[in-house]
Structure formats: C-alpha cells, structure tokens
Design a protein around this nucleic acid. Structure first.
Lengths: 239, 239
DNA sequence: AGAAAATATATTGTATACAATGTCATCAGG
DNA sequence: CCTGATGACATTGTATACAATATATTTTCT
C-alpha cells in the first residue's frame, strides 16, 4: 500500500472516529477527495478498506455511508473482544508469562494506581488511563504469540467504540467507580497470569469485558433518555 | 462496491484458494489485470481487500505477493476459530435453540450419517461432507445472533485453510476416522444445545476444533516428510 | 576485471477522462 | 391533484495516461 493510500485511509478512519460524520451520513467520493486534497482513487480504496473494517457500508453504484450502530451491536462486539482476550490470557498463563511482559504489566498497574489516586484527589480527567489500558491489553495479546488472534483483535480495535480507550475515556455516569473496578481486575489478571492459572485468567478477562458491557448499557440508557448527549465518537442509533 | 470490483475480488480470492499461485509468489497488477480481462483499477482494490483478509501481503511501491503460512500459523487460526465458535455455541445454548436452527442441525446430522455410511461401504470420496459441515457450523453461528461474531468468523473463513470444508476435504492420513470423530462431536454438540447446556456446548466446540488441529499436525508432518505432496490450496512453507 | 555510477526498464502510485448508473425534478396525462 | 414518463444532473465505476519509485542493465573509471 502506498504512502498516500495509507495516509488517506488512516485520516478517514480518524475522521470517523472523531465524529466528523453523523451516523448514517452519506460520503461522496469527490467531496471527500477535495477535502483531503487528493484524487478520488485513494479515497475509493480507503472506503473499500474501511468497509471491511465495518466503519462504513457501501452499496453498488450508490456509494458509501458511515455505519451506525445500536447499543446491542456494540455489546456484541465487546463480547467478542472479551472472548478473544480471554483466550489470549489463558494462552499466556499456560505458556508462561515472559519476563518483559510481566514487567510491562507491572508498569501498567503502577501507572493505573497513580492515575486513580490523582483522580480521586484532584478530580481532573483521566484520559491517560485509556492509554495505559491499551498497553495492558496489547501486552497480553502480544504475549499470547497467536498471530491470528492478534489480527482478529486488531479488527475489533478498528471499531472505535470497542477500543478500550474510547470506552474508558467516555464520560460515563460514574467514571471513578469504573476505573477502580477495572484497575482491580487488572491486578487479579496479572496475578493469575503470574501463577499460571489459565482458566482463572480467562474467566477474569471475560468478566473484565462484562464490566465494559455494563458501563455501555448505562451510557446507552442515559443517552436514550436524553440525560446525556451522544458524543459524536459513539455513532449509536437507537434501534 | 461495484459489480466488477466485487467479481474481481471474488475471482482473485478463488484463484488463490485453488492454488493458482505458489506461496510467496509475486503478483503484478498489470499481468493479473489482463489475465482477468479488466483494468488495473479494480485489481488494485481487490489486492488491498485481500491484504486485509490476509491472503496477500503488500509492501509500499513493491506490490503484493501471496501469503505463505507455517503449520503453526494455521494452528493458531484454528484455535481462534474454535474459541469463537465455542462462544457462539454457548450463546445459542443459553438463549435457547431456535426451532428452524434445530431442524437444520438435525438435517446436517442425518446427512453426515448417510455420507459416512456410504463412505465406509463404497470408499468413494466424501467431498459433500465439507458442505454439510459448513452448514452445520454456520447455522450455529447465525443462531447466536451476534453480528460481530459472525463478521469475525467470516474473516477466518476467508483464510482457506481454516475453512472447515478445506480441512475436511483434504486427503488426510485417515479421513474416515476424522469424519467419524467429527460427526460424533456434532451429535454431542446438538445434544448440549438442545439441553441448554452452555458451558458444555462451548467446551465441546473447542474440543471439536482441537481435533482439526491434530489432523492439521498429522497432515503437516506428512507433507514435511515428503510422504504426501502439499496440495496447492494449502500454501504452507516449512518454517 | 571489479566496483560504482548512470541509464534504461519495469512496476507501482496518482490523477483525470470517460462511461454507466442512479437520482431528482419537470412535465404530460388521467 | 396525483401518477408515471422523460430528461437533466449528480455520482459512482472503469480505463487510461502520466508521475514516482524500484529494479536491472550498461557504462565508466580505477
């Protein structure tokens, strides 16, 4: 893939992530092309690729529109993510936790603790929690050594709402509690990994995803009831 | 996606599946374009899409080559597939097996029994077993009602070696035993689904995948030792 | 003759032109 | 006033031409 192709795809993906389009909004190739300062050619393949990623959907001769999701769709995706990461955790525990992965995970735990401490005191936003969370999960998946697994998860990663940082960053009703629970689970997961408890690690990781799902439901409900506005990065439509 | 785009992508995918290219062989756009009787444009996006599917890999300004796999790669993919289908089976068992799915599964069981009977008697090839197997697995995944799961599995489906029919069709050392074991497992899985035993259904499905992995290893060993030639549809390179 | 530079060739990457298709508004007929 | 056809417009789909980049070959100098 060429430099421009790749850049265009990445930029468009980013735009969709950041809510540059309304859910279901139509994307015309020429408009997007001129907006990005490139020709239609790279835009076309970008759209095709993003279609496979599930960010847009196209119909023959009628172009593309950005995909809209129901809360259930997202919940399903989180389920898949949890299952795959659970598998990763089990593999890592069974094959033995590599030294550098163990250190990375410890580092993440520390960072998480610090962020939460600060958050509880100062109350400022904890957007760096998402970054740490991302590192935590990636480290485990990488350590699993299963390339297919990595690819599969990469795909769910491309869906913005499943991306851990998005879920974490999102201003949920009770971010503090969210983070505390997640952090506790991270500790338990590392414990299981270090002790080589495969089944437990898998179960914990699934439960970890379950918490995300619950948070999602709370968020979804609060959006549907109009209590909170829908952030543009979550392109949810109420089914 | 246009008609020609889609057709070109499908045709190329089919070609790779059928072993039209050697593992690692380079694909030049213009050659392929003229071979397919289309311009380079649709070929280009086809290649980009197939790259995301993992069938080819491209490097900037240097074009694409068809992907080659190690036995371990395939084993990993089967693992992922088993995990996801295990999840599907659990969901179906928990949510209750829909009427039409139950019938479809029963039908598959019957067909399978008949095929094996015939195979044991006449010894002719059982290529239609693969078709039945495909239907069986798809029915369960569909019944799970999880769209993300379906998409994820669709992706592993696109990798020919994981596709159940390929694994089944392949002339393994002991196809008869293979099929008998698989068929028995199908029976048990249906039983679990009908009884609403989620955990058992999941475990059975995983074990089902495990058997595929074992068969793969046997096949891989026999290929590596030169006992059997590598069928072109399995683009394995010995790491 | 061997190594480095320069040129030639092939292939990919991008833009544009044209064709095909779909969409929408206008207008005739009921 | 509504329904259905007709034509203008917009947008997508495909092909080709050109530019940029990599690879192979030849040339040149030591």
């Amino acid at each position: 893939m060429s430099s421009q192709q790749a850049r265009t795809t990445a930029r468009l993906r980013e735009m969709i992530w950041n809510g540059a389009f309304a859910p279901g909004e139509r994307i015309t190739e020429s408009a997007l092309a001129s907006a990005l300062g490139v020709s239609r050619t790279p835009v076309r393949v970008a759209l095709s690729l993003l279609e496979q990623e599930g960010l847009v959907s196209g119909t023959p001769n009628r172009g593309f529109r950005v995909e809209a999701y129901s809360v259930d769709d997202i919940s399903d995706a989180i389920d898949v993510r949890g299952t795959l990461e659970g598998m990763a955790a089990r593999l890592v525990a069974e094959k033995g936790l590599p030294r550098h992965t163990a250190m990375e995970l410890r580092r993440c735990l520390e960072i998480g603790d610090r962020i939460i401490q600060k958050k509880l005191v100062t109350g400022d936003d904890a957007s760096d929690y998402g970054e740490m969370n991302e590192r935590f999960h990636c480290a485990i998946v990488e350590a699993s050594g299963n390339k297919a697994l990595e690819n599969g998860l990469d795909l769910t990663h491309k869906l913005p709402f499943v991306s851990p940082q998005t879920v974490a960053i999102h201003e949920s009703i009770d971010t503090k509690r969210q983070m505390t629970v997640a952090q506790t689970q991270h500790w338990l997961i590392v414990e299981a990994l270090e002790n080589g408890e495969g089944a437990r690690a898998e179960a914990l990781m699934r439960e970890h995803a379950n918490v995300s799902k619950q948070a999602l439901n709370v968020i979804g409900a609060s959006i549907e009831s109009g209590e909170h506005p829908m952030p543009p990065s979550l392109r949810i439509v109420t089914a």
